[in-house]
């Protein structure tokens, strides 16, 4: 067939159908009767019908759509929870890092005074053992806020530990 000439069905709508056309016509008829069947021509047929005579929206469904749009989005709740959880985790992390920094600082600040206490027998005055900050906090952390207060508490406790260790080494207790 000449590719530039239209198929005979376009020029003669009543031309005898091919086997393929008969099969496709049967598929179209079935798809028009059963919307669950996938068929491009049936989909176009429905689009033509809906453009020419659009159907109204079911009222109950519409109200459900409105309610759904206005209801708090699950994603938003999750995000908010995630934000709060992240903030809480950040607070713990900040506290942990701060306590490590305080401990490191304690070691650094300890160095200049190491020489005088070198003569002190460590066996008789054991230093306080390193320990987690958990014991400092009996109450659960708030969802947000309070980080500065917690860091202050850790710093204060560790400063106290440092003093105890220094006094122990100097044997002034």
């Amino acid at each position: 067939m000449n590719p530039k000439s239209p198929p005979i069905a376009e020029t003669d709508p009543d031309a005898p159908p091919s086997e393929e056309e008969l099969r496709q016509a049967a598929e179209l008829r079935e798809a028009l009767a059963d919307p669950s069947r996938e068929n491009d021509s049936a989909a176009l047929a429905r689009a033509v019908v809906l453009a020419h005579s659009p159907r109204p929206l079911d009222d109950v469904l519409h109200r459900a759509l409105v309610a759904q749009a206005l209801a708090p989005r699950p994603g938003s709740v999750t995000n908010l929870s995630a934000v709060r959880a992240r903030r809480a985790r950040t607070g713990v992390l900040v506290a942990a890092v701060s306590s490590m920094a305080v401990a490191a600082a304690a070691l650094v600040f300890q160095q200049p005074s190491a020489a005088p206490v070198a003569q002190v027998e460590p066996e008789t005055t054991p230093p306080l053992r390193a320990r987690p900050t958990q014991a400092l906090f009996r109450e659960p952390f708030a969802a947000h806020g309070g980080e500065s207060a917690r860091i202050d508490r850790i710093a204060s406790a560790r400063a106290s530990d440092l003093r105890e260790n220094m006094f122990a080494r100097w044997d002034v207790r």
Binding site: A43, L44, R46, A47, V48, L50, A51, P54, R55, P56, L57, L61, H62, R63, L65, V66, Q68, A69
Partner: peptide, 30 residues
């Protein structure tokens, strides 16, 4: 509630050519 039925019937349904697509579009519009 006031605008939805018109949006669905006059704007979305004719252009999208499918009730399911028009309902999805209305939900997305809302």
């Amino acid at each position: 509630v006031a605008y939805g039925p018109t949006l669905y019937r006059s704007v979305l349904l004719p252009r999208l050519g499918s009730e399911a697509a028009a309902k999805d579009a209305l939900a997305e519009t809302y």
